[in-house]
Design a protein around this nucleic acid. Structure first.
Lengths: 135, 135
DNA sequence: TCCGTCATGTCAATAGTTTGACACATCGTC
DNA sequence: GACGATGTGTCAAACTATTGACATGACGGA
């Protein structure tokens, strides 16, 4: 499938540029989601990354040990532990985001603005249609 | 990322319709590649599926035990063992392909022909650009 | 109020994948 | 013919992720 191939190659390129920063694609996506939605829970993070809660938890523990994320010690209403980015994490995430943006720019350099907008719209339409027809 | 989300949802839907047939997405992709290119080797199969040779080998062994693929007993020039589909496999693959085609049709039902062609072209352009700029 | 449901976090066990390494065989070059 | 490079298959170990299960705490309806 064309979508799968494109995503696989993009994943490889992202992994190549993120490895020197000590991150993999899953960790980058986790930090990015944490930056966009501070105080999010581990389970919600797992849902957005399409992995199980347990995997996201071990990933989070690794990031906590490296001092990149901090989890609140006092649980919330539903026993959840809010997670947030640390100071050095935002700098690292900025660096990683720049690298990834470079990849995306190279990927879409052959497409003009019109085509790029249509690509985004079409992909979003496909995603929404599939998510709606679950079961 | 939009591409990743779309691919993830598509992967989930494919897994849902392939599970009743006793297949997962990796096995379906393997059978499909084997149908398009009969006599292909395990390593080439692994490259196309973006997995390691070892993973593809255990996947192939499972398919061999189920009588879906057959590997030639006499190695070729480079010690390779050609793999080919068995009789029941093509029927199963046809059934699976119909299910997947239904998913894809539902996914792209919101797009007219023009948009669909542009989507394919844009994705192919992105993939080719990324594969060209390896390193 | 009581109980069923849902949601989160965590543990143990299992399955699947990758990494690293080795043996074998061919091709190209000298 | 000899040698290194390349490509394939296979083994063992390590890692990653998933499945299944359990405890805890809050919400909602009878």
């Amino acid at each position: 499938m064309l979508i799968k191939e494109t995503q696989a190659v993009l994943h490889q390129r992202m992994d190549e540029v993120l490895r020197p920063l000590g991150l993999n694609v899953a960790q980058y996506a986790c930090l990015r989601a944490l930056h966009d939605s501070p105080g999010i829970t581990s389970s919600e993070l797992a849902r957005r990354a399409f992995v199980s809660r347990q995997s996201m938890n071990v990933l989070l523990q690794g990031l906590v040990q490296r001092g990149l994320v901090e989890r609140s010690d006092q649980p919330g209403p539903r026993r959840e532990l809010a997670a947030s980015l640390s100071g050095p994490a935002v700098a690292l995430l900025d660096e990683a985001h720049g690298q990834v943006a470079g990849i995306v720019n190279r990927m879409t350099e052959k497409l003009d603005g019109e085509r790029l907008v249509q690509l985004r719209d079409s992909l979003a339409a496909c995603r929404d249609t599939l998510t709606a027809s679950e079961g």
